[in-house]
């Protein structure tokens, strides 16, 4: 019963983080800020969903396999974020700043 409640909580938290990432991707003004939003969805959203489902796994092997996906996603997201941000900076994309009125 406690596990079910925890799973519900973690799945809902993951959904919230994915939603925040998508909203950021749609609403943020430039590449760097959108990269920031994408990393939230990648790391926290996927992490919460995987942790929530691992609590419901039938066997330890399935739970460990679920939790093995998360470090992979972390490494991939970090590498891609660094790579794209460095490329954008080298191409001269100017970071967005709030306009003075």
């Amino acid at each position: 019963m406690l596990l079910d409640a925890l799973t519900t909580l973690l799945l809902l938290a993951g959904a919230v983080f994915f939603f925040a990432g998508t909203l950021g991707l749609l609403r943020f003004p430039d590449v760097y800020t959108r990269l920031h939003a994408l990393a939230k969805a990648d790391n926290l959203g996927l992490g919460c969903v995987l942790a929530g489902l691992a609590l419901q796994a039938d066997s330890l092997a399935v739970a460990l396999k679920l939790l093995a996906i998360w470090p992979l996603a972390l490494i991939a997201s970090a590498a891609v974020g660094y790579s794209i941000a460095r490329r954008a900076e080298r191409l001269g994309v100017v970071p967005w700043q709030e306009q003075d009125q």
Binding site: L11, G14, F18, G21, T22, L25, V31, R34, L35, L38, A41, D42, G45, L46, V49, L50, L53, Q56, L66, I69, A73, S77, V80, I84, R87, A88, V93
Partner: peptide, 26 residues
């Protein structure tokens, strides 16, 4: 507007797709 924005959307498809696949498995 820029190619990087499209690519970021594609990357979001990758990570969200991973989440959907795991959820569908359960």
């Amino acid at each position: 507007p820029t190619p990087a924005d499209r690519m970021l959307a594609a990357l979001l498809f990758g990570s969200t797709g991973t989440g959907i696949l795991v959820l569908l498995a359960f």
